[in-house]
Design a binder for these strands. Structure first.
Lengths: 135, 135
DNA sequence: TTGGATGCAAAAGATTTGCACTCCC
DNA sequence: GGGAGTGCAAATCTTTTGCATCCAA
């Protein structure tokens, strides 16, 4: 069985062609695509898939912790298939989101902060990226 | 002259009653209100102010660095009148945004990261807050 | 006087929802 | 067979924009 199907079963979701297409599309993607971009690209290979299905599936994958939802682009949600702790840089000129390797004393296993139960940590840098700065 | 008016002049904006009302409304506010909330509350004391004016003014204040725009609430932009480096916790149950004091080895003067020019840093924690966890 | 600011309403985007139909388990 | 999943379109919510009018400097 494909690993994508396994992943879906593991988190209690039914295996459908649409969901497999979504998982395969975002697998290994380091560009942090938006839901719209994911939908748009999938619908070329999988005509007829609906926006709602993409949205619903992404939401369920996020909830299950299979993918990460980034709050870094002020205009829309961005998604990241890599869930291990790492950070991001958002270019306010071109809108690209870059992965960032940066040594921060952030233990990935913070459980509580000021009494609040922590489930996710995001460290976001914003500015102008290397490429855009050249212009 | 009031300090709010000074602030506006300093960043090259005309002093208008609407802008003064906006500045006074958000001054000292630690609840990280959304633009809609700011608009709604101001319009009670200042009937007739328009949404566009609130949005435009907030955008200009952010651009000038007088206030901070938070990318932490997946549903809308939140604003913070405190611009010094501090962190936030977002409760996904009630939607509140809390200030967080947490010692991280994040020097506030990071200029470049992987060649990208850094202008702002946000460290966001997400989960369920103390109050919501009780229920 | 004059360019920036405002108010209004419409438009644009992103996301969600309701519902009938479909198909995975 | 039954309930979750899908597709479609409409609805909702947030944010932006165009434009005529207004007013701070």
């Amino acid at each position: 069985m494909e690993s994508e199907a396994k992943k879906l079963k593991k988190i209690g979701l039914k295996v459908t062609p649409q969901r497999l297409a979504i998982l395969q599309r975002i697998k290994g993607d380091r560009t942090h695509p938006s839901a719209e971009k994911i939908y748009h690209e999938i619908s070329q290979k999988f005509p007829g898939i609906s926006f709602a299905t993409v949205y619903n599936t992404l939401a369920k994958l996020v909830e299950a912790g299979e993918i990460q939802e980034l709050d870094i682009d002020p205009n829309k949600k961005r998604f990241d298939p890599y869930t291990s702790l790492h950070y991001h840089f958002y270019c306010k000129t071109c809108g690209k989101v870059y992965d960032v390797d940066f040594d921060v004393s952030l233990t990935p296993n913070i459980q509580k902060i000021a009494g609040h139960q922590v489930e996710a940590i995001q460290l976001n840098f914003k500015g102008v990226c290397k490429d855009c700065a050249k212009r």
